[in-house]
Write a protein that binds this DNA or RNA. Structure first.
Length: 580
RNA sequence: CGGGAUGUAGUGCAGUUGGUAGCACACUGGUUUUGGGAACCAGUUGUCGGGGGUUCAAGUCCCUCCAUCCCGACCA
């Protein structure tokens, strides 16, 4: 393409709405145009990279026998009602109505739609396994769109689903997906860490997230540098040792604690260690149930674990009004004498003797509180948040933590949709059987943004050769170079190499800066040096080389460079295959 | 949804005690330039987020609505 003839719009200034590297560079390089919060258009240059990413994922999916569909964005409300997700995801869904008042959902994900298609089709075990996918738009009314296309309200997702006769068969596809995902990310130039996201101590990898280390990551990952344990902090578990003190049980005593609410203030007030406190928090579920969660003063509650402990219902911290309604006061909540709500306690609470907790009365706490003596608990279960320096569950080494961007997620779904939507097939014996499912997602836009987040310098983007919008940019600098530049440009195109030519009559500085900003891997400069000595310069954007060539060798040299760059990636792919 | 901030030209910003809208970049025409965002000359560009109010007079003060961004609860 000729820059003078295409939509090409680079910005010198940093757009004021952009705060992270990838967003700033995507805006400055003119890859995207922001139309409204979380809604972006891709320019031809940006879209070229998107298409290359999609091509790669398509190759990897096809390679493991997945079949590509194209599903509608408009989905009938009934499907969502059928699985209960019409209620569960109601805050996330964009809805629309037709002229008859019929409601439609702009698909936020496609388990229901795919399953509806599959149940119409599936008859026999001979048709399984069935692995299906699409690469298409998703719509989510995100609580907080952020960081440009990193978390948009409309975005492109590769979503795959698999249907199997049994869990062994699902295991096989799950493993194939793990490899396909790792290959995909490597081919995009990303270093990912597969992170366990299983639902707790049960073992068995039910779910895995693909994380890229980044300070702007929205996930906290816990890892053990010694044994290699890695898990999302939401799901991570750690080794804990509790000792029940053998001190004598004392009687409850009320203490006047004016305006002393937080654990820090309490420690200061009572002059005892945080382990003495029973921290009490009121949560509510969406259907209005209230839960009292208890945890030792030095620990934090993990809301995901808590939610799982009560059957997976979404929960949130109760507001002041709710806390009053159950007969307590924020800052002075405690389990003693409270009724009409479920009490879930972290394991740590079981071992507290003569502890301190809220009196459910403004400005009062009570001391010498001991579980089971002074209050009953529905169950003791691990609901604590795993933090850095907690001990590894496997080897008791202090854990480390880092921030990560989640670019992909693979998941064993089980029978949820098969049951809710009544998907069945006949096995060899003529019995009706429900298929077991898996689902596998990759955020395409987020992958693109993450690559930029990981690979840039002060001048702009540094694309990996595989997903760069163009592999080569040809820059003629002085008047009588345009003809030879044009010839090289055309020869490169004839070789099937994506090439951009900067045919604008502008000063060299602008051309160099634009080329750096949009991050084209190979820059071919034709200027004074060619006029004088017939020398054409090749410079690699990633700083890995500068070459001086002539008119006859330039195409050959470029092809060689591309070959080397692609080979580097292939080698990494081979090492993955060997690992697995 | 809670907390904080912002809204003025395509972009980034300034605009004093209320007095009829400005700078830089970009853009158009021209002359000279051409190896890391050139110089000069001449131009174009505005519903000051919307609505209402106070005032002789509002970008500026008041009310209200809207939008956007940042920090916390969801997810690819």
């Amino acid at each position: 393409m000729r820059i003078s003839r295409i939509y090409f719009n680079t910005l010198k200034e940093v757009p004021k709405d952009a705060t992270v590297k990838s967003h700033i560079l995507m805006m400055r390089a003119g890859l995207i145009v922001r139309l409204s919060s979380g809604i972006y258009a891709y320019s031809p240059i940006g879209y070229r990279s998107i298409k290359k990413i999609i091509d790669i994922i398509r190759e990897e999916m096809d390679r493991i026998g997945a079949q590509e569909f194209l599903l509608p964005i408009l989905t009938q409300k009934e499907l969502w009602v059928e699985t209960g997700r019409y209620e569960l995801m109601k805050n996330l869904m964009f809805k629309t109505i037709d002229k008859n008042g019929q409601e439609y959902i702009l698909g936020p994900t496609h388990e229901e739609v795919f399953s509806d298609i599959i149940r119409r089709y599936l008859n026999s075990y001979r048709q399984l396994p069935l692995i299906v996918y699409q690469v298409y738009k998703k719509f989510r009314d995100e609580i907080r769109p952020r960081f440009g296309v990193m978390r948009g309200r409309e975005f492109i997702m590769k979503d795959a689903y698999s249907y199997h006769r049994d869990s062994e068969d699902l295991d096989k596809t799950y493993q194939d997906m793990r490899i396909a995902y790792r290959r995909f990310f490597i081919r995009c130039g990303l270093d990912t860490v597969p992170v366990m996201a299983d639902s707790g101590a049960m073992g068995g990898k039910e779910s895995e997230e693909f994380m890229v280390r980044s300070t702007i990551g929205e996930e906290t990952i816990i890892e053990c540098l010694k044994c290699g344990y890695v898990a999302n902090s939401e799901r991570a578990i750690s080794y804990k040792e509790y000792v029940k003190s053998n001190e004598e049980l004392k009687n409850i005593e009320q203490v006047y604690t004016p305006s002393v609410k937080t654990i820090e203030e309490l420690i200061d007030f009572f002059k005892v260690s945080p382990q003495k406190f029973i921290k009490s928090l009121v949560y509510k579920t969406e259907d209005g149930e209230n839960i009292l969660a208890l945890i030792r003063g030095d620990l934090e509650i993990n809301e995901v674990k808590l939610s799982n402990a009560i059957g997976g219902k979404p929960i949130s911290l109760a507001d002041e009004e709710t806390v009053r309604k159950i007969g307590s006061e924020i800052g002075f909540v405690g389990p003693v004498g409270i009724s009409n709500l479920r009490i879930i306690a972290d394991e740590s609470v079981k071992y507290i003797v003569n502890g301190i907790t809220g009196a459910n009365k403004k400005d009062y706490h009570i001391k010498n509180v001991t579980p089971e003596k002074d209050f009953k608990v529905e169950k003791y279960i691990d609901i604590s948040l795993t933090k850095e320096n907690d001990l590894c569950i496997n080897c008791k080494t202090p854990l480390k933590s880092f921030k990560g961007i989640e670019v992909g997620h693979i998941f064993k779904l089980g029978y949820k949709y098969s049951n809710d939507m009544n998907i069945e097939f006949l096995d060899e014996n003529g019995n009706k059987v429900k298929p077991i499912m898996g689902c596998y997602g990759i955020g395409i836009d987020r992958t693109l943004a993450t690559v930029i987040e990981q690979s840039s310098d002060e001048y702009g983007i540094i694309w990996p050769i595989t997903i760069a919008p163009f592999k080569v940019i040809v820059i003629p600098l002085v008047e009588n170079c345009y003809e030879i530049a044009d010839k090289i440009y055309n020869n490169l195109l004839n070789e099937g190499i994506d090439t951009l030519i900067d045919d604008r009559q502008l000063s060299p500085g602008i051309k160099f800066n634009d080329a750096d900003l949009i991050g084209i891997p190979i820059r071919v400069t034709i200027g004074k040096n060619w006029v004088k000595n017939g020398v054409i310069e090749i410079k690699l954007r990633d700083g890995s080389g500068n070459y001086e060539v002539n008119e006859n060798t330039v195409i050959y040299e470029i092809k060689k460079i591309i070959e080397i760059k692609e080979k580097e990636i292939k080698q990494k792919l081979d090492s993955i295959s060997k690992m697995v």
